[in-house]
Design a protein around this nucleic acid. Structure first.
Ligand SMILES: [Mn+2]
Ligand SMILES: [Mn+2]
Ligand SMILES: [Mn+2]
Ligand SMILES: [Mn+2]
Lengths: 216, 216
DNA sequence: TGCCATTTTTAGATTAGTCTAATTTTGTTT
DNA sequence: AAACAAAATTAGACTAATCTAAAAATGGCA
């Protein structure tokens, strides 16, 4: 249906515009590690195909069909990540690159069978919701741990923009999805937080980390 | 490592030259459904990279590194086919096209984990041997059913050049890998054969079909 | 031996996807 | 309002992968 590059652009635009805002040329190029001029070219092609609305100098927005296509890609990506972790024993910090390739294999039957094989999972290994066949997925109101205050009891629900390095760091610290967290103290001067985990262990995290941990 | 087109060419050359003969430009182009001139271009590029020995006007042969690369591709292809049938419930006539895409996902870890997940299968759903990590695979001395004579008792071991149409036809006739076959009669004039299957069912197959069924 | 059909290669064009460098637009700041 | 910096687009070039059409080589046969 689409080329690999078209698919990656659609996915990037979708991720950048979950809130409904337009995705800027430079933001897309940064996400895909290409030059802005390459993105401009691709936006023209995608606009031609009716997948995005490109307002020159003001970024791009997915059309209805573009959004539909992007959700198919996100569904594939998250299902493959789930497969790699649940069935092949990969760690959550090892799956992204491989899923980035697998998502481009185009076979509706393959994905639907995979979905069934995995038991129709609702969330991927990073806590991100998996769209169903119709593009629908569970929406949860999560907030970053950094917005919690001392005394709050929360549960880790997803890791935002999880780079492999961050995910690996969390694993080493014993932080996984679903872990119960009690905030014991917050520090104004650097935004770091002291936590007590469900198993009683004590640790502290920097502001940078706390901003990526989505809870409740 | 290689592009999709390079990989498909390497695989085609390997398949054409299992016997040690050179693969001709036109044979490759027919297999890949491209034009001969495109193949000539690609042979130059592969020769440049040291993967094939291209003797202009006389076809191409894989070098040692080319053969190694081709075996990786064949391993991936057959493991994915096995996955699709064993884990996702595809029929043997539905897997080729999807595996043709999946084989290009490059991650050694993925393939080795998949191999383990499947229990290190030795044969794919069509009876073709799966190379191991080192490119080694089981070799069996099979012969086409068409070479058998009345009274022979054999077992179906693999289907040669199995197009999806042939595989589907076999399934409808109740012929699957491993089935016991007794040849009850052969007909000189058209090469067709009368068979009795393990479950007692009687049927006849044309020469064209009998030549594709590898037995013993 | 020399002709000729078939096969293969070469030449030249096209499309997708990318880049660098130059130009244009935007929006903010004096 | 003019100037400027940042962002985006345009222009022009390159590579990979394909094609069609023309030219060249091969190998069998009269
Ligand atoms: Mn991708
Ligand atoms: Mn994920
Ligand atoms: Mn392929
Ligand atoms: Mn097979």
């Amino acid at each position: 249906m689409f080329t690999r590059s078209e698919e990656d652009h659609l996915k990037a635009i979708h991720t950048l515009s979950v809130t409904g805002t337009k995705a800027s040329t430079s933001a897309i190029s940064e996400r895909l590690d290409t030059k802005a001029s390459s993105v401009t070219d691709m936006l023209k092609r995608l606009a031609e195909k009716g997948l995005v609305a490109h307002e020159p100098y003001h970024g791009a927005k997915l059309t209805t069909s573009g959004r539909k296509a992007a959700l198919v890609l996100i569904r594939r990506h998250r299902l493959w990540e789930t497969f790699l972790v649940d069935k092949l024993g990969f760690r959550w910090d090892e799956v992204h690159e491989v899923a980035e390739q697998l998502e481009h294999v185009s076979s509706e039957k393959l994905i639907d069978r995979l979905d069934a094989h995995l038991g129709h999972p609702r969330f991927d290994p990073h806590g991100d919701p998996i769209p169903d066949k119709n593009g629908r997925m569970i929406t949860r109101k999560l907030l970053p741990l950094s917005r919690c205050i001392a005394g709050d009891h929360v549960e880790l629900s997803s890791v935002r923009n999880g780079t492999d390095a961050l995910l690996h760091y969390l694993t080493r610290k014993g932080i996984a999805l679903g872990v119960a967290i009690t905030i014991t103290a917050t520090h104004e001067f650097d935004g770091s937080m002291e936590l007590k985990l469900g198993d009683g262990r004590i640790l502290s995290v920097s502001r940078e980390v706390a901003e990526q941990l989505m809870v409740q």
